[in-house]
């Protein structure tokens, strides 16, 4: 038993190598999405509140013309630092249909913080009709559903940033269909969404720089927050859990050593 067979260890090693290959070997992607650094990545990652707030402004001023966010309510904005009054004001800026009232009629009223973000279109057909037959997807979970083969889950932000900054002139000879736009990072390079952002497209309330790059990063951060509003709680609870488990494990390791010392 003492002489471990070299072969045994060898095979274990091979297995480990294959496991690594398995993780490393990625399908040959047509394009590599550029990696960005985000404040919310890593064990201690947190959202940059000012950035997420600016990102909401980009969504509200630009993206919300086409994209719904069904999972978000105005009240959720409190988490990224909007005051109660600001939230009331933002909600009240839209008219929503409510009812039926006592007379049995539907009626229009100003939005309330408990309402979900008002969608731009009444239904899928209307959305397609307004967008050349293409459907602008709901953005609530876009950062999560576009995370690709990403490991930690924040790769969706890289993708959003890439798409928004990836509009280029099509290379010579590229067959662009009618109403489509060339995008370096979209699968197949033809996207139905016209370039939504450009330098100076949004003027930020906090006066932050508003190049295409800044706007794209800010809205990507906002959509990452919307995709997982509890990310910070997760990281914080995780650190506490790990701390507890390390103590727990060391304790039982010590007890185990003590108890077994009588046997060995």
């Amino acid at each position: 038993m003492k002489k471990r067979s070299i072969l045994l260890n060898g095979m274990a090693l091979v297995t480990a190598v294959v496991a690594v290959l398995f993780i490393a070997a990625a399908p040959h992607e047509e394009v590599d999405i550029p990696k960005e650094t985000w404040s919310f990545q890593g064990f201690f990652g947190k959202f940059d509140q000012a950035q997420v707030k600016r990102g909401f402004q980009v969504y509200k001023d630009v993206c919300s013309a086409c994209h719904a966010m069904n999972l978000m309510s105005y009240r959720n904005l409190a988490q990224i630092g909007f005051s109660e009054d600001e939230i009331k004001e933002i909600a009240a800026s839209v008219q929503v249909t409510d009812g039926p009232n006592d007379a049995g009629d539907m009626f229009e009223r100003a939005g309330k913080p408990s309402d979900t973000f008002k969608p731009p279109f009444a239904n899928e057909q209307a959305a397609r009709a307004a967008n050349n037959g293409a459907l602008p997807p709901d953005l609530s979970l876009i950062a999560r559903s576009r995370a690709g083969k990403g490991f930690a889950g924040y790769e969706g932000a890289d993708y959003i940033h890439a798409i928004l900054t990836g509009y280029k002139e099509p290379p010579a000879g590229f067959q662009l269909q009618d109403g489509m736009n060339y995008n370096e990072y979209f699968r197949g390079h033809q996207i139905a969404m016209p370039q939504p952002l450009s330098d100076g497209a949004v003027t930020f309330a906090d006066g932050a720089p508003n190049t295409l790059e800044d706007e794209s990063r800010d809205v990507a951060a906002f959509l990452s927050w919307a995709g997982e509003p509890n990310l910070e709680a997760r990281h914080l609870t995780g650190l506490k859990a790990v701390l507890f488990l390390v103590v727990f494990t060391l304790l039982f390791y010590a007890v185990k050593r003590k108890v077994w010392s009588k046997i060995h």
Partner: peptide, 14 residues
Amino acid sequence: MLFYAFWVFFAPVA
């Protein structure tokens, strides 16, 4: 559990 916690808290959708 440490291994489990790593996935749950730091790579929950990996």
